[in-house]
């Protein structure tokens, strides 16, 4: 998850090349092939096969069935709801992530460690619990339930609940990506900008943001993928009302439980496609981030 490890695969490839090409550092062939064999088999069985299966199953009854499953009223609504949830939660977590990373990387304050730890809470807690938390707070029997009912505000079993659950679950992505990045960059460039007369906004816009933009984009992509794919937490708060509170993953489950396998896999293939697109964009971003930040402190050579 950390940018430092994920963004540097070009360097890793070069190291591997170097090790491979030299007699002195080369491993025995059987070691190489055993390790390669194990990892490739694992990859094929646990990753590639399911992915292929999704598309095969989706198209088993032909394109017509596939297509009609996708343009079914309920499916379209699920797509729309999924997009709404992502469209609200991603920008929210973008703003929060930048603020949190900024606060942690650039300031010293009490409770900093607590904040860093708490940011990870959505990763460490089961999504079901995350959903239940909101039911306990906003549900009919929850803390705010009676008050909400009085004012005719529906959160649980309605769109706001789904958005809240999605926000909670995708909370850490942007912040986790930016914190190590901003900590590594320090605040010297910002200080330089301020001394040169830039105000806070100018400093952020012209100095900080360009430096973190690839990490930020990376975080947003992961955040978006999770927002669209979240099942557990959303499942608890949604109530599974078809055509009203069903997101794509929930719709897949309903179809599956009703033995409409082809339709279920058709919708699932959409999510799988989304995952593939996400991976493609992620790779592209990594590539750009890699070339945009050449090694930060190359030691100087001769002047002029």
């Amino acid at each position: 998850m950390s940018a430092a490890t994920t963004l540097n695969w070009t360097a890793a490839t070069q190291t591997a090349d170097r090790f491979e090409s030299r007699e002195a550092t080369r491993e025995a062939p059987w070691v190489k092939w055993t390790i390669l064999g194990v990892s490739l088999t694992f990859f094929a069985v646990f990753l590639l096969m399911p992915l292929v299966a999704v598309f095969v199953e989706a198209l088993r009854k032909g394109w017509d069935t596939y297509w009609s499953a996708l343009i079914h009223e309920d499916a379209l609504w699920a797509i729309k709801l999924t997009l709404i949830a992502a469209a609200i939660s991603v920008p929210l977590n973008l703003v929060f992530g930048v603020c949190a990373a900024w606060a942690i990387a650039k300031f010293e304050f009490r409770g900093k460690h607590l904040l860093i730890t708490l940011i990870d809470l959505p990763f460490s807690v089961s999504p079901v619990i995350a959903g239940l938390i909101y039911v306990l707070i906003f549900g009919a029997q929850g803390w705010l339930g009676p008050w909400l009912a009085e004012h005719d505000v529906r959160i649980i079993f309605a769109v706001p609940g789904i958005v809240l659950a999605t926000v909670f679950v995708t909370f850490p992505f942007v912040a986790r990506e930016l914190i190590p990045l901003m900590q590594a960059q320090g605040r010297e460039e910002e200080e330089a900008a301020i001394v040169l007369g830039a105000n806070g906004w100018q400093t952020f816009w012209y100095v900080t943001l360009p430096n973190i933009k690839w990490g930020l984009l990376y975080g947003v992509i992961l955040c978006n993928a999770r927002a669209m794919g979240e099942f557990g937490a959303v499942s608890v708060v949604s109530g599974h009302i078809r055509g009203q509170t069903n997101t794509l993953p929930l719709h897949v489950e309903i179809l599956y439980n009703e033995y409409q396998f082809a339709a279920a896999f058709a919708v699932a293939s959409l999510l799988a496609l989304l995952a593939l697109v996400t991976l493609a964009i992620k790779t592209w971003v990594e590539h750009h981030a890699g070339s945009a930040t050449p090694s930060r402190e190359p030691r100087q050579d001769a002047a002029s």
């Binding site: 330089a192 900008a193 301020i194 001394v195 040169l196 100095v207 930040t293």
Partner: peptide, 20 residues
């Protein structure tokens, strides 16, 4: 404020804006 003091500051590690 720093930005009104009209000082020029040169940092040990240059602190050039790397994307410019």
């Amino acid at each position: 404020h720093v930005r009104e003091r009209q000082v020029g500051f040169v940092f040990q590690h240059y602190a050039l804006f790397r994307h410019m």
